[in-house]
């Protein structure tokens, strides 16, 4: 099989992942999109490893690394999302603007970011 096929699939998967990271509002979906991006990278690595006939199989080794890191990162990420949900009652990324620089008059009785999500 020519290397084009898995590389194109990988690129498509990566693009879908980028779209998900930049455009989805739900934090969990963002995390899933990040997973998608990482797996696309994995596919790319394996495909090139086979095509280049690397004797040390650097691509496949790096794939294993990426799988582990992705798993750890998703675990941590989900833990953060759960903590945010517990305090803010929302995981809408658009609502989580506490790091913004624009000084807005604080709404009394409504912590930042709460409301209809």
């Amino acid at each position: 099989m020519h290397v084009v096929y898995p590389v194109v699939v990988s690129a498509l998967l990566f693009s879908i992942g980028v779209y998900g990271v930049l455009a989805r509002r739900n934090a969990i979906l963002v995390l899933m999109s990040v997973e998608l991006m990482l797996n696309a990278v994995n596919l790319n690595l394996v495909a090139f490893d086979v095509w280049l006939r690397d004797r040390l199989h650097g691509g496949q080794v790096l794939t294993l690394f990426v799988i582990v890191i992705a798993a750890a990162e998703v675990g941590l990420g989900l833990a953060i999302v759960l903590a945010v949900f517990r305090t803010r009652r929302t995981v809408d990324v658009d609502r989580l603007r506490a790091l913004a620089e624009v000084v807005r008059a604080p709404d009394p009785g409504r912590p930042d970011g709460e409301g209809a999500s």
Partner: peptide, 12 residues
């Protein structure tokens, strides 16, 4: 400062 609106997706 307008660019610093707290939205992480904008930063990315």
């Amino acid at each position: 400062r307008l660019a610093q609106n707290g939205n992480a997706q904008l930063y990315v």
